[in-house]
Design a protein around this nucleic acid. Structure first.
Lengths: 341, 341
DNA sequence: ATCTAAAATTAACGCGCGTAAAGTTTTTAT
DNA sequence: ATAAAAACTTTACGCGCGTTAATTTTAGAT
């Protein structure tokens, strides 16, 4: 097994000229089947691969794709990232995954570093409220970018996410139909723009159903939602803030904290006879199945959001990085009935 | 704001020769303070950055560092990855994060792709049992690699992880001291080598304390530990496999499933009077605080494992990629008492 | 066997930067 | 002030590959 230094050498060993070999690596189907066979034969024998730095220096467009999520320690984003990664690989691209870890500074640094990677495109789930909009706008101007999960008005070539109204209307209607209308439990200053849309949807749906909306806003900042939810729930329970026996949490991570607080307080949650409270939520977090009781929630259409995001990005890339107009695609939720409501 | 094309152009605009500018980017302290100032002044004015592809093509060693974890949807690894990333950045390196998603094929592909990135070093938490040892060995031969979390005998230049004996001895001793000796709850064919060490430690400690070890092995493969734990627990409870009122789970994700199963069955877990079962575990998963009841567990020394891992890798890099001998560093656990035991 | 379109070869340039050598200027020490 | 050391400038080559233009070979059809 000789060590190959460069394409010149490999071309010589395979008996094919370098430009043809170069062409092969760009697109194996662009060469004659016989020469392709000869190259691939040599490839197995000598284990050569083009120097990606030399390749990317000379190609106008790299095969790199950046994937940026706001908080990777949230398994929801880890799952989505997994799907996005695999779709990129399947399409012959090279995904690079980054997490902003909830910090604006880091999000900016990631976008900064991403620029020098000269990616063909970027899939960005921004931090949301605390994102540096102007920095993101500048970034999007120079790199084809598709936003997902969190929409920022007008930024990126397209947005793909979930239809928050569909989430909340389904959970509210279900709870109302099978019991009492829920209060809405959320952070006072949510990081994610979806939270605001969910609150609005809650108020709308309650109005429409003829009930008075009741929003419980809890304190806390950052991304430790479970702890924030737990503390907020303890306080709300202590102060008897709930107007009915039903609560709808803005998202599952808050609900996880809420359920932990209920358990601590000996409050039985669920629809069984001995239960005094029903808790539902939104997202269908990977752990929602393992809360006690298991969490009734509105599930993201993970697969479609992820699939459409990469699809859209590929279209964008093939379109030269620009769309005629910015599109927003929203996928509806699927209600997942479990034990908590 | 003119658009700069290359270093030549930037050098001209800053009034400094290109080789000096190049030197500056390699190490800002290697040029005279006055010239450094002039360069940085121009830098603010013109926003130029070297083309990383051209840079990396010519430098013997890149500033890239690969971070590979077995399963990023596990918040434990997400948290560790976060720390590793930040340490790399602080040291002037460029971390690239990859997850094997529990698949050998993917782990191999990641290492494969990593080679062409020509990283200065790699931090690798391998899949464990299902890792392709020969592939990893080959990789380590050509890239300076430090293993963490999961040890594979003899692979990598060093290993940094947790002392499984310390984990299990603390939990077993605690449970025994304050109640009955625990059974050990684990997967029959665990993916992670730590699991085997924990079982051995359990048997050892039980023997030493004069109790008969009792290991409950449950079925299931893959990385959906919570569901495996839940199903296994339902079966074990149904078949009355437990010899005492105490269970020690091999890891927290299994324990999360175990607790969910107990809740479903109406079994009260904890140390209160009305409880009939105590459950403890190992890892201190980020969600362990929010299980019902909250989980008593032995915590990894996250910070030290992560810090020592990057430290070791940097030493390795400065050492030219080779150590005299392979070292294994283990950090002890810290017992975290919560409500479940 | 002959023609033609497709594919491969040869030759050569450029990408942006690292880096080395030789000469010049600036700084530091005496 | 002077010498030595340090830093900078100029010049030039090389890295590995993309890409183009001109030429030759090959394949499929008549």
């Amino acid at each position: 097994m000789t060590k190959i230094k460069n394409m010149e050498e490999f071309a010589a060993l395979s008996g094919i000229s370098r430009p043809t070999v170069s062409k092969y690596f760009h697109d194996p189907d662009s060469v004659r089947p016989t020469t392709r066979a000869r190259i691939e034969e040599a490839l197995e024998q000598f284990d050569y691969r083009p120097n990606i730095y030399a390749v990317n220096q000379n190609r106008k467009l790299t095969k790199n794709i950046g994937i940026v999520v706001p908080y990777l320690a949230d398994p929801f984003f880890a799952e989505i990232a997994r799907y996005l990664e695999q779709s990129c690989i399947a399409a012959g691209y090279r995904p690079f995954l980054f997490s902003s870890h909830g910090e604006q500074k880091l999000e900016n640094e990631i976008l900064d570093g991403l620029q020098s990677l000269k990616p063909a495109g970027v899939l960005l789930a921004p931090l949301g409220r605390i994102s540096d909009k102007s920095a993101i706008e500048k970034f999007c101007a120079s790199v084809p970018t598709v936003l997902f999960d969190s929409n920022l008005d007008g930024l990126g070539a397209a947005f793909i996410g979930s239809d928050n109204f569909s989430f909340v209307s389904q959970t509210v209607e279900y709870m109302t139909r099978t019991g009492e209308p829920p209060s809405f439990f959320e952070m006072r200053t949510p990081a994610n723009p979806n939270a605001n849309k969910r609150r609005k949807a809650y108020v709308d749906v309650m109005d429409r159903l003829g009930f008075e909306p009741h929003v419980i806003k809890i304190e806390g900042t950052g991304w430790a939602f479970e702890e924030i939810g737990r503390k907020g729930a303890l306080k709300a329970l202590d102060e008897r803030k709930l107007r009915t026996d039903s609560v709808l949490c803005s998202n599952d991570r808050l609900a996880i904290g809420f359920l932990a607080a209920c358990f601590e307080q000996g409050i039985r949650v669920g629809r069984k006879d001995d239960c005094t409270l029903r808790v539902a939520s939104n997202d269908d977090h990977p752990f929602a199945k393992f809360t006690c009781p298991s969490l009734t929630t509105a599930a993201h259409d993970y697969d479609n959001v992820a699939a459409r995001s990469v699809e859209t990005l590929f279209e964008l890339i093939e379109n030269g990085g620009k769309f005629e107009s910015r599109t927003e695609t929203l996928f509806p939720a699927r209600l997942v009935l479990r034990e908590s409501a």
